[in-house]
Amino acid sequence: LINRAERLGLSELYQLRGRVGRSDRRAYAYLLLPSEIDLTAIARRRLAALKEFSDLGAGFKIAALDLELRGAGNMLGGEQSGHIEAIGFELYTQMLDRAVRELKGEMPEEEVATQLNLGLNIRIPADYIPEENQRLRMYKRVAGVERDSQLHDVRAELIDRYGEPPAAVRNLLDYAELKLVAVRMGVGAIERKREQVSIKFRQTATVDPERLARFVASQRGTQFSPDGTLKFLQKATAAEDVLSNLKHLLEELAGTPSAAA
């Protein structure tokens, strides 16, 4: 019996529920609420999630929803707390997914991922995709994009099913596009803290040395260290401007055709 269940967080309720039914005898977890209380919208979503997510591997879905509820919708922004603030949403969800796979006996292959930690408001609002499962599915689809054609398909599906995406969703798609460019170029990580941006290039990165030298010389306060890290100032604060500027910079440094267009 869990009394006053509305006072507990989603992860706490999930952990408590997991303490029953671990033998060969069927068990039940009862969540008790005062009959006269008016539940908040978030409390209702927490309780509804516990009812919905009960299958094997539901821990990842619970964790993702818990992040959304506690993070005020700013899933990739600077208002996060705890471990996710230190490592970013993308890496955090990758670690969660890997842990779930290992518990299920699936050993994922090692991947060298490109990490983007930009502190931007990049999300799917609940008023655009109301159903939580569908929002989670779309987040994972965007995160799993590996080719431009896949990103085009995701964009087309969003428009077809939910209408023209709002600014936050367009930012999410632009974020995915920036990551595709970074992966192709050989960027290890891009981090933005206020006006300071750091781009860490791998040794195999396709950077034009002359273009890089011109950029460093032309931008006041720009530094390029021997370990392959480019640091510079970017005063743009709007998400669409930050993403667009970074994408164009990478294309310029790589000397890709789109940069010259």
Rank of each mutant, 00 (worst) to 15 (best):
T256F: 01
R46A: 00
A99P: 00
Y92N: 01
L65Q: 15
Y162D: 01
E52R: 15
E132G: 04
A113M: 11
L243Y: 09
F224L: 11
Q203K: 15
A43T: 15
G186D: 08
S35R: 15
G78T: 08
P108E: 03
L246F: 09
R184P: 01
Q134V: 11
K51Y: 02
V142E: 06
Q15Y: 13
L116Q: 09
R194V: 02
I87N: 04
T93S: 02
N245I: 07
F215I: 02
M185F: 05
Q94V: 00
I124W: 06
V20N: 00
E191K: 12
R192C: 02
F89G: 05
L16W: 13
V100Q: 11
Y128Q: 04
L16F: 11
I122S: 08
P257G: 01
D66H: 15
K61N: 06
L32I: 11
K247E: 03
A167W: 07
Q134G: 02
R141K: 14
N171L: 02
R22V: 01
E240H: 15
A189L: 14
I87G: 01
R101A: 14
A27L: 12
E102R: 07
L253G: 02
A189C: 09
L173Y: 05
V197F: 07
P130M: 06
K179N: 09
V112A: 11
I2A: 07
E157V: 01
A259V: 03
A63V: 04
G188F: 04
L253A: 03
R214D: 10
Y128G: 03
E164M: 06
